[in-house]
Design a protein around this nucleic acid. Structure first.
Lengths: 234, 234
DNA sequence: AATGAACTAGACCGACCGGTCTACTACTAT
DNA sequence: ATAGTAGTAGACCGGTCGGTCTAGTTCATT
């Protein structure tokens, strides 16, 4: 009765096929860079992620996602049991992409900890600026956007987003810990400070979106490095 | 061909009818404090504002708004030409309510400027806590929510929200100016600092919503008073 | 050559969307 | 008394929503 919906597996499995078996099962990573099944799934993911980011969850129907992906509804529901499950998959992929394409580089230990935060601010500004240049609008944070739109409606999505924000928090905590170890920072509540920095970042992004003006980010975002929540003294 | 839709007028006009013409047209401000037509309109506004806040713009249809207000569709479209216009009216009313019920008191000059910011933080926490207690969810900021959901879709709404955020900024600027005048603050960019405080506030609220946990606000929000954007030195 | 699974195609479904329309009621002004 | 207007009622509209279903196609395996 229940369909198969292979999307769960593919996320992790494709990565592990680096062995030198040339013949078999996993057709996705070897030889053909654009084989039909995985291509279809990826196109759906990319389409959904673009459309939902530039508009909103509710405003983008699965018909629109399919059309923009060049895929038919039948295929869509072969891969995803529902729009909600698609969104969950989009979030997973988006976080992985963001981590690999940005967080890892931005928070790398090649410069002093607090300067990494400035690099983070700068990168976020540049990203939003680039987006604004080719869509004409400041779109903000893909995670923050969905968080606000769906947190009260879709508990599964809220949970996924909560986990993503916790991972981001862990990344920033690492930076702060490095700063403490380097003696650049004293007597702060590391976890709360990381949380406050994320909050500030999300808020700046929100304001840039309402004002439809990226320059808000250029002015405000660098102050993220100055935020501190002091260690609680009992 | 086009219907009348009296709501446009009422917003500004009711305020200006302080002249002593007793006889005519505007029946809404004089004598009867609860005359039927205004009651219906208010019920629609209240219903929409509650529903949209606890769910989202897209998730709440006009049928649901009418039902929750105990009003029929015919009446709804007598007062509002569209769901979008209703939302505009809701935003106007919400800001006025917030200003009268909270901002005016919170930012009053009875205590030192920077303490007013703490009072603001405390009030926001208490508000969200109360909301969470009777809805089971942290709903966040009504303005921030709509800002993120609709800024890229409904320019008129985005503009209204932008104006609201600018007014809020002006309120905080006043507090900061008082602080500067009192010698509590030096060399800051007042406008940008006010903006940063709003950003931080919105971001904290967003995080509280994703984590569905008001305590986030209790921990983070008070630090709003420490935020400063230094005066730009050229 | 045949089998079965993965995938695609697209017609179709009931529910609901925002919005319209006509008829009716209640009240005001004359 | 009457005419006009503001407001109410609720059936109705075309369109779109998320999702289903059946029939076909492609392809690896035997």
């Amino acid at each position: 009765m229940e369909a198969e919906h292979p999307q769960r597996k593919s996320a992790e499995d494709t990565v592990e096929s680096g062995k030198f078996v040339l013949d078999l099962t996993d057709r996705s990573t070897i030889i053909t860079p654009m084989n039909p099944p995985l291509d279809t799934l990826d196109r759906i993911l990319k389409s959904a992620s673009e459309l939902m980011y530039s508009r909103s969850y509710a405003d983008v129907g699965v018909a629109a996602i399919c059309e923009h992906a060049g895929v038919k509804k039948g295929s869509f529901y072969h891969f995803f049991p529902s729009k909600r499950d698609l969104t969950l998959a989009v979030l997973d992929k988006s976080y992985i992409d963001m981590k690999e394409n940005m967080l890892d580089a931005v928070f790398a230990s090649d410069i002093p900890p607090l300067e990494r935060l400035l690099r983070f601010a700068e990168t976020a500004y540049e990203f939003n600026k680039a987006v604004a240049q080719d869509t004409g609008q400041v779109l903000g944070c893909p995670f923050g956007n969905l968080a606000i739109e769906l947190s009260t409606q879709e508990e599964a999505i809220r949970l996924k987003l909560e986990r993503i924000f916790k991972k981001l928090n862990a990344n920033i905590r690492q930076v702060l810990q490095d700063a403490v170890d380097a003696g650049d920072l004293k007597d702060i509540n590391i976890d709360a400070t990381a949380q406050a920095m994320i909050a500030y970042f999300e808020g700046c992004t929100l304001l840039a979106k309402v004002h439809n003006d990226v320059e808000v980010l250029r002015t405000l975002l660098p102050q993220v490095a100055q935020i501190r929540i002091p260690a609680q003294q009992l």
